[in-house]
């Protein structure tokens, strides 16, 4: 059982990641860790005590988004369920996920690797969900990429589709319905 000090340490770490996710989602991935410290009301030294470099903080943020993406899609029992679970997690982390895909070059190699590995696992879960239903005879990779392309196009061009608010909250159901009708 963790002692009081360990508990406090892990709470501070979680708080730093949580605030960093908000700050980087609102600003961009080039934002300094000093801005995170100010927003979290902790010293800059506290950030470095938990994350020796900014890259370590970026890796933790990517993991924080990728873990639920992998877990939720793994639990999907059908293709519609997969699509809904996928959209639900992406909607929750929409602004930050958009940064991850639009500013990939600002991510360290280890964070990119986490994204790539999560994408590969989500693709396998997509294929498992596909097997539960009857769809057009199209290569699974192309079906997955078509879904990804649809979602990412709306994410990357959200200003044109939903200038205010979440583009996935507004169009998620439409994208799911359209994709299902396209492939069945």
């Amino acid at each position: 059982m963790p002692n009081q000090r360990q508990l406090q340490k892990s709470q501070t770490r979680a708080k730093v990641v949580d605030v960093a996710m908000q700050v980087y989602a609102e600003q961009n991935l080039s934002t300094s860790t000093l801005a995170v410290a100010k927003a979290a009301h902790v010293s800059h030294g506290t950030i470095f005590a938990h994350f020796p470099t900014k890259d370590d903080l970026l890796i933790a943020m990517v993991q924080q988004v990728c873990t639920p993406l992998v877990t939720a899609t793994d639990a999907a029992t059908s293709l519609p369920d997969f699509l809904q679970q996928h959209i639900a997690v992406l909607t929750k982390y929409e602004a930050l996920y958009r940064r991850f895909i639009s500013e990939q070059d600002a991510l360290p190699a280890a964070a990119k690797q986490v994204l790539v590995a999560a994408q590969a696992t989500v693709a396998v879960h997509f294929q498992a969900a596909l097997a539960t239903t009857s769809v057009k005879s199209i290569a699974p990779g192309l079906l997955f990429n078509t879904w990804q392309g649809l979602v990412q196009y709306y994410l990357l061009n959200s200003e044109q589709f939903a200038p205010t608010g979440s583009v996935l909250a507004r169009y998620g159901d439409t994208l799911i319905d359209t994709f299902e009708r396209l492939i069945s």
Partner: peptide, 8 residues
Amino acid sequence: LMVKTQGL
């Protein structure tokens, strides 16, 4: 598996 599921 990667080539099949993602077309890489």
